[in-house]
């Protein structure tokens, strides 16, 4: 099993958010989690990425034969986990290009691979940026600083394509995107899909899933997955909302 979440319960500030959650993802699969506001979707994404604000009450997560809780945030990233943030953080003064260069090399170092030199990295970055319709001038700016909502999401996907993760978690990547930007972003995701990597897509709406076809759709309500199935569930939600699952 690529990612195995078993009986996971999590709380933050005395509030139980995830309750005995179970989820299995195999290599090459695309899973979507849909759920109403406050159902715990972003908490799950943050817990997987290693955010330290949460208290793990119970459960286990295995990722690529590692106990995920033995790995800190950066070790998870270096092992191939990537979280595309719902609200990417603005970091004034940290230039995009050296930041991403350092990020890719930290991963290569862990994998005992040779570091990528400046020139090769510049070429890689330029080509990936061009695929996503990102202006080269944007790469001279600080991380997410002064970006529009759409630019931030596109930049998340650019980072994802550079880091080439084994498991990408997209936390409401569709929020704040107009239809053209949504298409560019989802095209970028589809290009990255291979039989060796997996995606966990968190969304409220079916629209995103029209562009990225999931193998499985899960409905999450009140911290647990209450229904799993194929893409027909997304259509059901689009038609009737989440009411019937609550």
């Amino acid at each position: 099993m690529f990612l195995e979440i078993k009986d996971l319960s999590v709380k933050i500030e005395n509030k139980n958010i995830l309750k005995s959650l179970n989820l299995n993802i195999n290599k090459g699969e695309v899973h979507a989690i849909m759920g109403p506001n406050g159902s715990g979707k972003s908490t799950l994404a943050n817990v997987l990425a290693g955010k330290e604000d949460y208290e793990i009450l119970n459960g286990k997560i295995n990722f690529k034969d590692n106990d995920l809780f033995d790995l800190n945030i950066e070790e998870r990233a270096q092992e191939g986990m990537f979280l595309a943030f719902q609200y990417p953080v603005e970091i004034p003064g940290v230039n995009i290009t050296p930041f991403l260069h350092s990020a890719i090399n930290s991963k290569r170092k862990r994998m005992n691979e040779a570091e990528i030199d400046n020139l090769s990295f510049a070429k890689l970055l330029k080509s990936k940026a061009s695929d996503l319709g990102i202006n080269i001038d944007m790469l001279k700016r600080s991380v997410n600083t002064g970006f529009s909502g759409g630019e931030k999401k596109r930049y998340e996907i650019l980072q994802m394509s550079i880091l080439d993760p084994d498991l990408a978690i997209l936390d409401e990547t569709d929020s704040g995107l107009d239809i053209d930007a949504l298409k560019i972003v989802t095209d970028g995701v589809n290009k990255l899909k291979t039989k060796n990597n997996s995606f966990l897509i968190i969304t409220h709406y079916q629209k995103l899933l029209d562009y990225i076809k999931p193998d499985y759709v899960h409905v999450m309500v009140n911290g647990s997955i209450v229904k799993s199935g194929g893409s027909e569930i997304a259509s059901e939600i689009e038609k009737d909302g989440f009411q019937k699952f609550q």
Binding site: I73, E74, A77, S106
Partner: peptide
């Protein structure tokens, strides 16, 4: 702390 988490989630040490 959010900025630290963001950078670490890209593989950078704390």
């Amino acid at each position: 702390e959010n900025a630290i988490f963001y950078l670490r989630s890209r593989g950078m040490s704390k």
